[in-house]
């Protein structure tokens, strides 16, 4: 589905991704874990086209998107739910959803139908659809950010720290949504610091440190590896 090979991304002269190779398979939740500064968000920005890698290639379903702009990548099927949600605070919820569909053709008859589907999936957004998005709670804003990204009808959904700054109950709700989306066939690439929750939804896990992949396997392998388990899940998890 999505394949990154030997990606090297820089901030000026600082090398943030040092030859990153990663694959997200169709219909799966691929999770990228790592400490602060490991390069998780840089990975997301590189895939979304916000940052340009100096070397390496990026393929989505056999199409080379390495030199394709961020705008075109959204049209090609890569949608990002950014860290800290980044909704449009002064626009209504309905308008925020409309912006998600801007990458779709004007004559796409399914847009209105998809908006109704989003309201069915997130009833709280429907209740507040004419409300300014900035007035929503953190959890509701996260739901809106997910719904907005889904309005682009993506082939792959990139989710950058969806649990960041949310109360534990809301985090649980957000991960239930991720699980549901995946059950409906949405391919997800998830970046998370909350490793415990991330492993409950992940089919495949990558650990990255200092811009390099240091582990690549399924969640059960993480549980079996004493060093990784202690580093990411804490000693109480057996």
């Amino acid at each position: 589905m999505l394949y990154l090979e030997d990606i090297r991304t820089f901030y000026g002269e600082i090398e943030a991704l040092k030859g990153l190779t990663l694959e997200a398979r169709k219909g799966e939740v691929t999770c990228v874990l790592g400490p602060n500064g490991a390069g998780k968000t840089t990975t997301m920005f590189t895939i979304a086209g916000i940052l340009k890698p100096r070397t390496g290639t990026l393929f989505l379903e056999d199409e080379n998107l390495t030199h394709v702009s961020a705008q075109s990548r959204v049209r090609k099927g890569i949608a990002l739910v950014p860290e800290n949600r980044l909704i449009f605070p002064q626009m209504t919820i309905a308008e925020n959803l409309d912006t998600g569909a801007l990458s779709r053709p004007l004559k796409d008859a399914g847009i209105q139908e998809d908006i109704l589907k989003m309201y069915e999936r997130f009833p709280r957004l429907h209740e507040r659809k004419e409300q300014m998005a900035g007035t929503l709670s953190g959890g509701e804003q996260q739901m809106l950010a997910i719904a907005r990204a889904l309005m682009a009808k993506p082939k792959i959904l990139l989710m950058d720290e969806p649990s960041l700054g949310l109360a534990p109950l809301i985090v649980k709700e957000i991960f239930n949504i991720i699980r549901q989306l995946n059950e409906e066939g949405v391919t997800i690439l998830l970046v998370e610091q909350n490793a415990k929750m991330a492993l409950t939804v992940a089919d495949h896990v990558y650990l990255i440190e200092q811009g390099k992949v240091t582990f690549n396997g399924n969640p059960s392998e993480i549980h079996q590896d004493e060093v990784i388990r202690r580093a990411y899940l804490g000693s109480e998890v057996s």
Partner: peptide, 18 residues
């Protein structure tokens, strides 16, 4: 809508393909 989205949050609008 794209103009208003850009005005409201330029970075976020880039993620929407604007």
């Amino acid at each position: 809508l794209a103009i208003r989205a850009y005005s409201d949050h330029p970075s976020a609008s880039a993620y929407m393909g604007i």
